[in-house]
Design a protein around this nucleic acid. Structure first.
Lengths: 239, 239
DNA sequence: CCCAAGTGCGAACAGTGTTCTTGAATTCCT
DNA sequence: AGGAATTCAAGAACACTGTTCGCACTTGGG
């Protein structure tokens, strides 16, 4: 970062970067639970004990990988979401959802690390993972903040009443959003995570080709949850 | 099983049962990734090598635990679902969803084993896990087969059209169910899994008290997906 | 120039899954 | 009943893991 950097310091940055790169390779190969410090050391041609000059242990390596994966995912989704015109709220949602799924199927082990079972004996430090971990949900929140549209969805019977939703809203740290909008966003989000998890973790016995249309249905459901019935606009083919 | 069982055979059954019990304890304590054959052996006062007379290795131990957990969960949900009158389809769905969540929060490590990230280097043999793993989804499928109600849900815009849903239906091995019903059930199911996973794996920063109302919303969404608007019946308090 | 800091390495410890051998206990057969 | 065959539990061993420690060595700053 600083332009004046001693050779020593620069080398340290290089080694740190190589370490993280090797760890990423190892994670993509064997997954989080099978991640081995010694394998990382082998991959970069160093003794295992040498790595402990750069990381405090396996836990910090996991933390590094988590924020790295969160940032990779967040950047990917942000890049694609930025593509669609700001006024097209439904398109922005679809871009978020599909790019989220796209990154996930391309990086299944990273997805499992972020949204799958937590690694036992390890608790991610929230102060380090939070900024990167909320990037994609922040996109969703920004979508929910947009004023013009977003009709509330009272069409669903047996929904928790307005008071409870209000309590949900104040509990969350999104004070400017009312309960109906917040619960819509949360439902769309958890449905999205559930669809991707079910697909990647292979809880569905169906052939893969049909998973696409099932995911399309999930996206449509989320869109309806967020924005309701479309209001008399162009009805082109949504492909 | 057979009434005439030699002492040797009986002892083998006892040891096998004790082994599975110890493995369950260990799983509940440390989770699947932290499960240790040696710890199980210690717990039952045996040498680690002795266990290999009863299991072929760590993988079979995992398989045993998986079908055991699936059966425990399936039995729990079935028992509660049986409670509500058969004609009350919406109540049956709600019973399935809430009991599914109830078991999951009571057995987080088992839930992670079943619906979380798959253990690396391990692939569950479908012929052994399938019968137990489909018990709760079978309950859902039975709900979808019921004739009287179940209006299709074309209200959601941008849904995949009928042809694609038909293809989804014939791809699944549920031939008697049409595409609309099948996709409704699948959406309700993946949304349910997503809600429970997000809650248990702590992807939501909200306080725990509000998770209840968020889950209520998920249940309501699933109910609407499966059965649509209620048709002029008793409007008692749904608590 | 020289000393202190930073760096890499090898050995070592405790733990893991798994295999093999060895010896004892039990069952089976005649 | 006695000998043979099978089953069982245990111990030692191997290859692997995360981690610590002490020892050498390079390097940068006063």
């Amino acid at each position: 970062m600083t332009s004046t950097m001693g050779a020593r310091e620069r080398r340290r940055h290089e080694v740190t970067a190589a370490l993280l790169a090797a760890a990423r390779r190892e994670l993509a190969r064997t997954g989080a639970a099978g991640l081995s410090v010694r394998a990382v050391a082998r991959d970069m041609g160093m003794a295992p004990s040498a790595l402990f000059r750069y990381i405090s242990g396996r836990d910090e390596l996991l933390t590094l990988l988590i924020v790295d994966a969160y940032d990779d995912l967040g950047g990917h989704v942000e890049d694609i979401e930025r593509t669609v015109p700001r006024a097209d709220l439904r398109g922005r949602w679809r871009a978020i959802a599909t790019s989220f799924r796209g990154w996930s199927v391309a990086h299944p082990h990273e997805y499992a690390l972020l949204y799958g079972s937590p690694v036992p004996e390890y608790k991610a430090p929230a102060e380090r993972t939070n900024p990167s971990g909320t990037r994609v949900t922040n996109l969703l929140a920004a979508l929910g903040m947009e004023d013009p549209i977003a009709p509330p969805r009272a069409a669903i019977p047996h929904m928790p009443d307005a008071d409870e939703l209000k309590a949900l809203a104040v509990a969350a740290d999104v004070p400017r959003m009312d309960g109906e909008r917040l619960v819509s966003g949360l439902l769309a989000w958890t449905a999205l995570v559930g669809a991707v998890s079910s697909e990647l973790f292979e809880q569905l016995g169906e052939p893969v080709a049909r998973l696409d249309t099932l995911f399309d249905a999930t996206v449509a459901l989320g869109e309806w949850l967020l924005f309701g019935e479309p209001q008399e606009e162009s009805a082109g083919s949504p492909a």
